[in-house]
Design a protein around this nucleic acid. Structure first.
Length: 623
RNA sequence: GCACCCGUAGCUCAAUUGGAUAGAGUACUCGACUACGAAUCGAGCGGUUGGAGGUUCGAAUCCUCCCGGGUGCACCA
């Protein structure tokens, strides 16, 4: 099963092959001139360039092959089972072949410098949609077979409040994970918390200054440390920026922080106990935040999780001759032979022996390979500014020979700016907290729900849940519909308009279909399991849209670009809304047409639900 | 200094990776709720794709130079 355009590509590709031209040049796609045709193939022009021929002549040659009645029946009839199943196999004759050819193409013509334009018959569209309707995967092929993919996103820091920027990594990473699963991978999200660097030493030593009497700081203490932290998460979150600033201003405090970091990494008991409080408190906060967003992780590792592996890896890297000493530190030179530009070496260990994020990132790759024997990809979703770092880490892992046959991919997102185009700040000049942002959007959604004439049977609880779903749809859809690598303008007022190209629009259309289908059922109308589609002028554009899903999914997979799916979801929702406004569905008197239109609605709903699900957006029953 | 990213309609963004007449949303102006939910639909307005060259049947996309904005270059992550 594939898209309709891919089916056509198979036919046209075979036609190119019949002329000794590359099969791929027969690629057919939805036309970008719908006034001229439904589908187009541009390969004749590329082929003409290769063969140094006139493009229109090449195109004519392809069209001649396609118009040969025997061509399709001889080569490709198996592809068209649904519309051709009336033809008895093994009984091909010229008449029947003509029938098959005519059953596919309504028009077939050459335009401009050598475009081949196609219109297909309504029966062909109908047959295709019947098959799609009967397919659990809606025509999307499975491209993987249970290989493991680890996605590293979120990257929240311990003791540091989540801010608006985390929405980017969370939404994109989670969506990529869902895409990978649909494709057939065993995809695992790793939060990979920032819990092991100098910041930890900074906080520890700040506490040591403030509370020197705590048992965590007594080297001779041998008892049990308190199970609960003697400070709250809010206090922790507040102490961090002060500690960081303190180290900036005072070299002695910085030294103390460095020393504390190293001792923590060395396993000093009291520090570890204190550090565990940081983790516990931070996790509680993080889990509450991501639960509201509907995002989750399978792997709750942090940088610290590979600490025990560092001696082993350090030795291994040295044995492989990958590391070098440099100014007392251990580094990995990472210039690839083919690279022209200079690249600074990866700092693997600081001169005082402490680990950096270079250390833990390389160690994590090593660890994942051992933990997941079927690993095929590691995908990192972080701020774009870490680009160089990941290039270095990936190159180091390659040089060490850890990642043969494994794809390492960094997907960077741009900075979050305010409406003024500068890095986002609240009116008070502070970074907006993630939780405040979600709360604000939810409040707007509640407000909007209060204005709407909602069904009185919707209770306060359901209304709250609907508001949450609308808020999540808003946040994720605005986030995901931008390309990741672009800087991002965060404008909460614009975001909460809930009109036009927004998450709530998609929910609204989906809810409308759901409501319609409920009514249909109540009236005893059914589309049936393998619906028979009747495509008329009012149905055609929606029907054609419904043939496209696999193409968009494939494009999003290939380039790791969720915004392609957002675009399709919106186009489909809009196509439905237009269809809905233009024709009778329940009130259609012709039973066959009515059943077909209901089946179009049902299929639209399934596709919308599917895409929204991949985007991480849930649909309410009503709104 | 070296490297990377960005510049498209007033604003926010697309453009199937080199295809035809550069598309959406928003804002603005009209029009449509006694057929199924108006958070909707239809129509109009809006462009020298930052600029200049080049490559070719064809460029927002590729190459060169320039302008403007942002970012990164080992002991923070």
């Amino acid at each position: 099963m594939t898209s309709l355009a891919q089916k056509l590509s198979t036919i046209v590709g075979a036609a190119f092959e019949a002329l000794d031209l590359p099969h791929e040049l027969g690629a057919v796609r939805v036309s970008d001139r719908p006034d001229l045709a439904q589908f187009q193939c541009n390969g004749a022009m590329a082929a003409a360039k290769l063969a140094r021929k006139n493009p229109r002549e090449v195109a004519q040659g392809v069209v001649d092959v396609l118009e040969d009645p025997l061509f399709i029946s001889d080569n490709l009839s198996s592809l068209f089972y649904p519309i051709l199943h009336n033809a008895k196999s093994g009984q091909k004759n010229a008449n029947q072949a003509i029938t098959m050819q005519a059953a596919l193409f309504k028009t077939l013509e050459i335009a401009g410098p050598g475009f081949i334009n196609f219109n297909v018959t309504d029966d062909f569209i109908a047959g295709h949609l019947s098959v799609v309707s009967g397919d659990d995967r809606l025509g999307i092929p499975q491209s993987a077979n249970g290989e493991t993919v680890v996605l590293d996103y979120g990257g929240m820091n311990v003791a540091k409040a989540m801010h608006v920027g985390h929405l980017r990594s969370l939404a994109i990473g989670d969506c990529l994970k869902r895409m990978m699963r649909v494709a057939g991978y065993d995809a695992l999200g790793d939060i990979h918390m920032g819990d092991w660097g100098l910041q930890m030493g900074q906080i520890i030593s700040a506490f040591e200054i403030a509370h020197p009497g705590w048992p965590y700081f007594d080297p001779g203490f041998e008892g049990d440390y308190p199970a609960d932290a003697p400070f709250s998460y809010d206090e922790l979150e507040e102490i961090y920026p002060r500690a960081a600033q303190g180290c900036k201003d005072d070299p002695e405090r910085l030294d103390a922080a460095r020393k504390a970091t190293m001792e923590l990494q060395d396993g000093r008991r009291g520090y570890l106990a204190l550090w565990q409080h940081f983790i516990d408190l931070s996790l509680t906060d993080i889990k509450a935040n991501i639960a509201r967003l509907g995002v989750d992780f399978e792997i709750w590792n942090g940088e610290a999780c590979v600490n025990y592996l560092i001696p082993e890896i350090t030795a291994d890297l040295a044995a492989r001759g990958v590391t070098e000493d440099s100014e007392g530190a251990v580094v990995i030179p990472v210039v690839r032979p083919e690279d022209k530009k200079e690249m600074p070496p990866l700092l693997f260990k600081k001169s005082d022996g402490a680990a950096t994020y270079g250390t833990t990132d390389v160690a994590t790759i090593y660890d994942r390979i051992k933990t997941y024997p079927k690993i095929a990809k590691m995908i990192y979703e972080t701020d774009l500014r870490q680009n160089l770092h990941f290039e270095q880490v990936f190159c180091a892992a390659e040089k060490a020979g850890y990642v043969d046959g494994i794809e390492l991919k960094h997907i960077g997102h741009g900075t979050v700016n305010g409406p003024d185009g500068k890095p986002f700040k609240t009116r008070e000049g502070k970074a907006m907290k993630f939780s405040d942002m979600v709360t604000a959007v939810m409040a707007k959604a509640e407000e909007r729900l209060a204005e709407a004439n909602l069904d009185e049977t919707i209770g306060i609880e359901e209304r709250g849940e609907i508001a949450r779903m609308v808020a999540v749809a808003t946040l994720k859809f605005t986030e995901l519909s931008n390309q990741a690598h672009m800087d991002y303008i965060f404008d909460i007022d614009r975001m909460t308009q809930f009109e036009g190209k927004t998450g709530p629009y998609l929910l609204y259309q989906a809810v409308r279909i759901k409501s319609l289908l409920r009514k249909a059922e109540a009236q005893g109308f059914e589309a049936g399991e393998t619906p028979h589609f009747v495509i008329g002028d009012e149905d055609r554009s929606l029907a054609l849209l419904l043939t496209e899903l696999p193409d968009h999914f494939e494009a999003a997979m290939k380039h790791y670009t969720p915004h392609v799916l957002c675009e399709y979801a919106y186009t489909l929702a809009q196509g439905f809304s237009s269809f809905y406004g233009n024709c009778h569905i329940l009130s259609e008197e012709n039973a066959g047409v009515r059943a077909s239109r209901l089946a179009l609605c049902a299929l639209t709903y399934r596709q919308l639900e599917f895409v929204l699900n991949v985007l991480g957006i849930d649909i309410p029953e009503r709104m």
